[in-house]
Amino acid sequence: MLEGFLLTVFACTLAIIGAVIIGALMASLRTSGNRIVRGVAFAYSDVFRNTPFIVQLFFFFYGLPEIGIYIGAFETGVIALSIIGGAFVSDVIRSGILAVDQGVIEAAKVSGLSRWTIFTKIVLPIALRTSVRPMGSVLINMVLTSSILSTITINELTGTAKIVASTTFKPFEVYLVLLVLYASLTYALSLLINTVHRRLNRAMDTGGAA
C-alpha cells in the first residue's frame, strides 16, 4: 500500500500544479474585457463543475485513443484531475481578482504601468494571496477525488487497498485504515496551506511582496 500511497501523492502533486496553472490562466481570461474570451472560460468552469468527475474521466480514458492520442492511464488521470481542479481553482482566483482594491489598480495606472504589467505583477500576486485559503479546500477535494482514478486501472492508494482487501479477506479493516490515511493526508495538506497562507500574508504586511 506504500507504493499506492506514494503514487497518490505523486499524482496529486502533478495535478495540483496543473490545476493552479490552468486555474490562474482561466481566471485571467474570465476577467478579461473580451466577451467571447470570458464566455469560453466561463463555459469551461461551468461544464466541468456540473458534471461528475468519473464521467469526465471515462470521456478522456476511452475517448482519447479514439482520436489517436495514446497516453497511459496515469497520464490521462492526472490530466483529467488537473482539468476539473482547474475549473474550481479558476473560480477561487477569479473572486480573488475581483476583490483586489480598485485604488491599487488606479495607482498603478497613474504610475504609467502597462496593463500587462499591472495584471501580472500587481493584480495576480495579490489575488493569489487572498485565494490561498479557499483554494486549500479545493485542493483537499482534489486529493479525495484522486481516489476515483482507481476506476481506470491506476493502482494508487485506493487501487492498492482494493487488492489488499481482496487478498486478505479483511475489507473492513483495510478500508478503515484507508479512510484514516486519506484523512491524515488531507490534514497534512491543510497544515501546509495554513503555513503558506501565513507566510504569504507576512510578506504582504512587511511590504516585501515580490
Binding site: L144, T158, F172, E173, Y175, L176, L178, Y182, T186
Partner: peptide, 14 residues
C-alpha cells in the same frame, strides 16, 4: 475528509 469511494467500499465490502 475521506473519499466517498472509500466510504462506499467500507460500507459495501467492509
Amino acid at each position: 475528509n475521506s473519499p466517498v469511494l472509500v466510504q462506499l467500499f467500507l460500507v459495501f465490502f467492509g
